[in-house]
Design a protein around this nucleic acid. Structure first.
Lengths: 160, 160
DNA sequence: TATTGTTATACTCTATAACTATA
DNA sequence: TATAGTTATAGAGTATAACAATA
């Protein structure tokens, strides 16, 4: 019955609340559940840091990785992100449409695209890195510096 | 051009690899990125633990929370999960279709549904809790018991 | 008026599989 | 044959907005 209407906010994601009076049972002891809650909290920090820019975590990661690895191919980008080639293409299309990234044919393989930041892309990534890192640390100010380092260490050990 | 064909695996989610030779720049120092990697790793553990059962993290969480809070309403379930009421309804439809959950009108409010596990639901949740907890701990065996506790503490502090 | 649940719809993300061009 | 990229399509998950029934 409802007519199609207005667009979604691109990514809302409220914090996952601890609802008072609700018993969480085994969830409180699962790393998976705790990780999910923490990740949503950090995603919100990311969202605040990038407010006004139509950027998402995969887009941000792509830009950073291309900046640090000029000439990276789309396939390699997909591998880094853990997504399929078709998804990597769409990300690159977006970055190219925003004039942040250029596709150049690398010497010696005319099937592939080498990805490079444009001047605007470099400037943009520099600013975003600053804003995202700053918010990430602001959120982590609930932890001491030692705790933050320890958390990074434990997460790497778990994921590795 | 491609003809529509075969279905998706419901949730594949490969680990996010560290691609050798690739420079990760600022990502290595972002809690948000590390959390994402760890969360994908733990999601894979969940997926293994629940292999053969058509279950997902929100479904598992729903069943556990309903089991621990009999009579919970759909709205409250949505709040716990951090999703909209319409999404909570679909989850409950799924659980009810599998005869794991019953909707009962609570005394005093005939708008709401009180959610209750069926006998089969209780049995099912008991088994899933065992399997998921076991896999969660197996994955965490990369950490010492003290490290695991510390990680849970730090995550709660970060998300809280 | 506000809340619970329901319905219909829309959008994002990412997967699959087939295709083309090149290696 | 294998790989890089492209295209078309499918599906999961979740949001929005309006509605009916009840509070």
């Amino acid at each position: 019955m409802p007519k199609p209407r207005s667009p979604h906010r691109p990514r809302t994601l409220a914090p996952i609340p601890y609802v008072s009076g609700v018993e969480y049972d085994v969830l409180d002891d699962l790393l998976g559940y705790s990780l999910r809650r923490a990740q949503v909290a950090m995603f919100m920090a990311f969202h605040e840091a990038t407010r006004g820019e139509d950027i998402t975590p995969p887009r941000f990661t792509s830009l950073v990785v291309i900046g640090a690895n000029p000439g990276l191919t789309q396939s390699a980008l997909g591998e880094v992100l853990g997504i399929a080639r078709s998804g990597a293409k769409m990300l690159v299309d977006w970055m190219q449409a925003r004039l942040l990234v250029e596709r150049r044919r690398p010497d010696g393989d005319s099937r592939a695209w080498g990805l490079h930041l444009t001047r605007a892309g470099e400037r943009f990534v520099r600013g975003m890195k600053r804003r995202v890192s700053s918010k990430d640390r602001a959120r982590a100010s609930r932890l001491s510096a030692a705790e933050r380092r320890e958390l990074l260490r434990l997460l790497a050990k778990l994921a590795g």
